[in-house]
């Protein structure tokens, strides 16, 4: 059974802000310190980081598949237009 105290509740309330870069360096330090002592919150933190990384990787991969050719065309087209402006 997971034990949740006030420090854990505070940690979980701050979790999104911490990973979104909205905490001051002092707040962030104290946030991370709790995770090093609390296995349950450490798991929560790891889960949240993993969720974001998965999302990022999956979408970047999908994006690469969808847009690669268009992006290459755009680069060529833009450079041609820039050189034409001489």
């Amino acid at each position: 059974m997971e034990t949740v105290n006030n420090a854990c509740l505070k940690f979980r309330r701050l979790l999104e802000d911490a990973l979104d870069g909205n905490l001051s360096p002092e707040e962030y330090k104290s946030f991370i310190k709790h995770a090093t002592f609390c296995p349950a919150c450490h798991r929560k933190l790891r889960g949240e980081i993993m969720f974001r990384k998965l999302l990022q990787r999956a979408l970047n991969q999908k994006q690469q598949e969808l847009f690669h050719d268009k992006a290459q065309q755009l680069i060529i087209s833009i450079k041609q237009r820039i050189y034409h402006q001489r």
């Binding site: 990973l19 870069g21 905490l23 360096p25 962030y28 330090k29 991370i32 933190l45 790891r46 980081i49 993993m50 990384k53 998965l54 990787r57 999956a58 991969q61 598949e65």
Partner: peptide
């Protein structure tokens, strides 16, 4: 800002995540 938390071993999920 402080250092961002690091992802646990980088290659852990690569095979899974990279599947379409």
């Amino acid at each position: 800002e402080g250092p961002p938390p690091q992802m646990t071993p980088a290659g852990d999920m690569r095979k899974e995540v990279e599947s379409s």
